[in-house]
Write a protein that binds this DNA or RNA. Structure first.
Length: 864
RNA sequence: GGGCGUUUAGCUCAGCUGGUUAGAGCAUCUCGUUUACACCGAGAGGGUCGGGAGUUCGAAUCCCUCAACGCCCACCA
């Protein structure tokens, strides 16, 4: 497979054609294929983030993923084989939500499977959501992600990311499910994971448990309600301020600060919950603060996280009133924990609340309080922060349910230590990680009451009454994996025993999506199946918003599974902000999609834009930088074309020996700068500072176009010269490699059309730099070239000042310089005369003892 | 309330192991050019480096302090 038929550059640049040729060439010749036969030392491993495949990519993805690609490309050209997998994070709630909306269906596990059901997308479908079986729902998810992922794949290919597409995975594939279930079993066997019945943060919209990392605070308007509680055995009332009066029926205690003078006399007494006539203890507790509200508060099960903590240490019975759907459950006063002095009245009041949503119940209850004169005054408006599930639109509630938890709180030290062994770039990002770990106050709830995810490889035995024995789960054997306990059967049982007394049931929950994506290193290793490779990987690239989730959970799992770190370095990219410096997000509606920018500017210019940004720095979207990139790409094309024409014109073609041809001091002086550039760029790249490398290379490249090329072009066109032409060839070759990680398309095009040397494969499989690249062809310094460029600049300035054309001949130049410098300059006299458009006689040197080497002063005479 | 970051030309950003006159691109203005490139070239103007105080022979760079903005966390009766 050759790159293209005619190996010449077009007269004008055609980016679309170039991009298509490259994509085709790279794919058919497998330029980016990972070599599975190499050792760990010969391999560079990237723990690529699997993007959430539901929905669309935004320009921020392209930004950060391109930065990683630049790093990976450098490593590849440095002789490593690069394990650079790509995957899709397609399990979990985002996909379910998208599927629900796209096909207008909802999953109802009690509906039977319909083999003929085909999900269909109808624009603006207003009909009621069709309920389908769990299996039909999962199939619909699979259908939609297949097409979403196709779109992602083509964008990534269009932007030139060098993934090995053979190493592609998805987090819902059977292989991944096996890895994830194996992880669960390992943690279970180590005793790190347990199932616990306890109050959990619960999203009532999705009716699922959620984890601390998925919580987002939102500012919400609400009211303070001042409610009067009678103190039993006295005529006194105490006023309690609450934002959640609907929790009155679930009140378990009244607390005030132990030092609070106002309430000392009530400690040990009971307060009567109004309307429900429930006596509750008034107790001293640090939980209350003297100067907040009225200084005295009610504890309910559960108004907030603090209530949960207080309840756990109180030993008091649980009064759960919020159901899984966010409505008030059916409870009966006078029974169990729901004590009342007047159960009849309490039940009468509660009957008006039950089945209502929280907000409606609050409204009803407040009206009843007002009507009964129990409000000390009218509700006072306030805005306060309320916890939401990050993808939900109703506040989370605390609901008691059975969930699987990974014990993390006892491993904080180990996780902080692991974080310290990883090199964070930028280094201050490690702070964020440590602060998060230190602030962790809950274990990791990994079960979700959803459908499209990794099932728990667990069943429960049923006793003779049909009750599940949650304390002794039947965990799948590793050889069985992957399993779906809802359809697969545990060893020793048969399908007809499912759901029957003395039989079994499957765990119907699925895992938190992070429980699987925290295994991306293990998933990648599983895909390539090479025993020589292990964690830690070389780099983990990711954005800073998911340090608390993805980075944290990946470290946690690596520590728990193998007591090691998952990667040596973590590269944190910044965000793309919209031009008003606001974070781009779907909810703000300011998301910019990448494909039209790629279409407008071309892939290389977009990559240039991404590569200019430093790690960790948030950057405003600025198309001016893409314009700059486009100019650079255009210049690479044109300068190369120009050099090609000189090469075609000269005798130098085929294989050349640079050392014997590059003899002119001016050329050697220039190549000294090129060699220095490559050395510096290499050391920048070694620390993943691609942006500094690019800055350096770009600066030198414009220097090349503006000065060196102008200085030597006359000589290069002369039939007797070979040095300038050879030097230009070496220069172009070097720049192509230098720009290759940043602008893979244009550099490949130019490389393939190069009229010299043997071209056997892709530029991107050539070597970035060899030890002896510049042996024998560079001067020991660049004084000659530096001064020649200063003289060139001065001549141009003089002509511009004289408002005359740059082609005008200069009649005389007097250069003042120390003698040593004059000697150096005389070695490049021919080029200096050419660039000034002078006669040989018109250049004069003057001795200037006050100047030192490297300094000149110039007198131009009579620009004619 | 805690942690972290940012603040440099009209805009987007470099520079910050302290050292000549603080840089680039875009934008603005002037001039030029059509055999590498109008997706062009040559040049010019434009900044008391967020404010204040300090260390130093010397500070955009180091220390302190204040402010604005952003992100994360906590509180949220």
């Amino acid at each position: 497979m050759s790159y293209k038929e005619t190996k010449t550059l077009d007269n004008r640049i055609n980016l679309i054609e170039i991009e298509n040729n490259c994509k085709n060439f790279w794919e058919t010749t497998e330029v980016y294929r990972y070599d599975n036969t190499k050792t760990r030392e010969e391999t560079f491993i990237v723990d690529t983030p699997p993007p959430t495949a539901s929905g669309s990519l935004h320009i921020g993805h392209i930004f950060s993923y391109t930065q990683t690609d630049v790093v990976a490309r450098f490593q590849r050209m440095s002789g490593k084989t690069v394990l650079y997998p790509i995957g899709w994070d397609d399990n979990g709630l985002p996909t379910e939500r998208r599927v629900q909306n796209y096909y207008n269906i909802a999953c109802n596990p009690s509906v039977p499977y319909d083999a003929n059901f085909k999900p269909e997308h109808i624009e603006n479908d207003k009909s009621p959501r069709k309920e389908v079986s769990r299996k039909n729902f999962i199939e619909a998810c699979e259908t939609l992600i297949a097409s979403d992922e196709g779109v992602f794949e083509s964008v990534f290919k269009n932007i030139g990311h060098s993934y090995d597409w053979n190493i592609k995975y998805s987090t819902i594939s059977p292989k991944t499910i096996r890895v994830s279930q194996e992880s669960f079993i390992d943690l279970y066997e180590k005793g790190y994971v347990t199932s616990v019945e306890s109050p959990t943060m619960w999203d009532v919209t999705f009716q699922s448990a959620v984890a601390q990392a998925e919580i987002e605070d939102k500012e919400v308007a609400g009211f303070f309600h001042d409610i009067k509680f009678k103190v039993e055995g006295t005529e006194d009332y105490i006023t309690i301020a609450t934002t959640r009066p609907e929790f009155l029926p679930a009140c378990i205690a009244i607390v005030a600060h132990p030092d609070d003078e106002r309430y000392q006399k009530y400690f040990g007494k009971k307060a009567i919950v109004p309307l429900f006539e429930t006596p509750v203890d008034i107790v001293p507790s640090e939980h209350a603060e003297k100067d907040k509200g009225t200084g005295i508060m009610m504890v309910c099960t559960f108004g907030d996280a603090a209530d949960v903590a207080w309840w756990k240490q109180s030993g008091l019975p649980l009064k759960q009133i919020i159901g899984h759907n966010g409505c008030l459950m059916d409870v009966e006063f006078g029974k169990g924990a729901f004590v009342s002095n007047n159960p009849e009245k309490a039940n009468e009041v509660y009957s008006q609340l039950k089945g209502q949503k929280v907000t409606k119940a609050r409204e009803i209850l407040v009206n009843m309080l007002r009507d009964n004169g129990i409000l000390a005054n009218e509700p006072r408006p306030l805005t306060h922060m309320v916890k939401f599930y990050e993808k939900g639109n109703q506040p989370i509630e605390f609901v008691t349910s059975r969930q699987w938890f990974v014990k993390l709180l006892d491993k904080k030290e180990a996780m902080i230590e692991a974080g310290r062994q990883i090199k964070w770039k930028p280094s201050y990002m490690q702070h964020r990680y440590e602060e998060w770990v230190k602030g962790l106050n809950q274990d990791w709830c990994i079960s979700r009451q959803r459908f499209f995810g990794v099932p728990f490889p667990v069943w429960y035995k049923l006793d003779s009454y049909g009750n599940p024995d949650y304390n002794n789960p039947i965990v799948a054997e590793r050889s069985q994996l992957p399993v779906d306990p809802m359809t697969d059967v545990p060893t020793g049982f048969s399908e007809d025993m499912r759901g029957c007394p003395n039989g079994f049931i499957g765990d119907k929950d699925v895992m938190d999506t992070w429980a699987t994506s925290a295994l991306t290193p293990q998933i990648a290793l599983d895909v390539v199946n090479n025993d020589a490779l292990t964690i830690p990987f070389d780099i983990r690239p990711q954005a800073h918003d998911i340090i608390r989730t993805w980075a944290f959970y990946t470290i946690a799992k690596a520590v728990m599974h193998s007591k090691t770190i998952p990667w040596k370095e973590i590269l944190i990219s910044g965000f793309i902000l919209d031009p008003d410096r606001k974070k781009m997000s779907k909810s703000k509606g300011n998301v910019v999609t990448p494909q039209h920018l790629i279409d407008n500017y071309g892939a290389d210019p977009i990559r240039y834009w991404a590569s200019r940004a430093r790690l960790g720095i948030d950057t405003a979207l600025d198309e001016q930088v893409m314009v700059q990139g486009k100019k650079l790409v255009n210049k690479i094309f044109n300068a190369s074309k120009f050099v090609f024409s000189m090469v075609e014109n000269s005798a130098l073609k085929g294989s050349i020996n640079y050392e014997s041809h590059i003899t002119n001091p001016m050329d050697k002086s220039w190549l000294n700068k090129i060699e220095a550039m490559m050395q510096q760029a290499t050391s920048n790249f070694v620390t993943h500072d691609y942006a500094s490398a690019l800055e350096l290379i770009e600066k030198r490249f414009w220097d090349f176009c503006d000065y060196y090329l102008e200085i030597v072009k006359k000589r290069a066109y002369s039939p007797t010269d070979t040095s300038a032409v050879a030097s230009l060839m070496k220069t172009i070759d070097t720049f192509l490699k230098a720009f290759a990680p940043f602008c893979p398309f244009i550099t490949e095009e130019v490389y393939q059309c190069r009229p010299w040397g043997n071209i056997t494969g892709s530029l991107h499989n050539t070597s970035w730099k060899k030890e002896d690249d510049f042996a024998g062809i560079t001067a020991s310094n660049s004084v000659l070239y530096d001064n020649a460029s200063i003289i060139t600049s001065e001549i141009r300035k003089a002509k511009t000042t004289a408002n005359t054309s740059q082609r005008t001949a200069v009649s005389k130049i007097i250069i003042s310089a120390p003698l040593e410098l004059q000697e150096v300059l005389k070695e490049g006299i021919e080029d200096i005369i050419n660039v000034g458009n002078l006669n040989l006689t018109a250049l004069e040197f003057q001795v200037a003892p006050e100047l030192s080497i490297g300094e000149i002063s110039l007198d131009l005479e009579a620009v004619a």
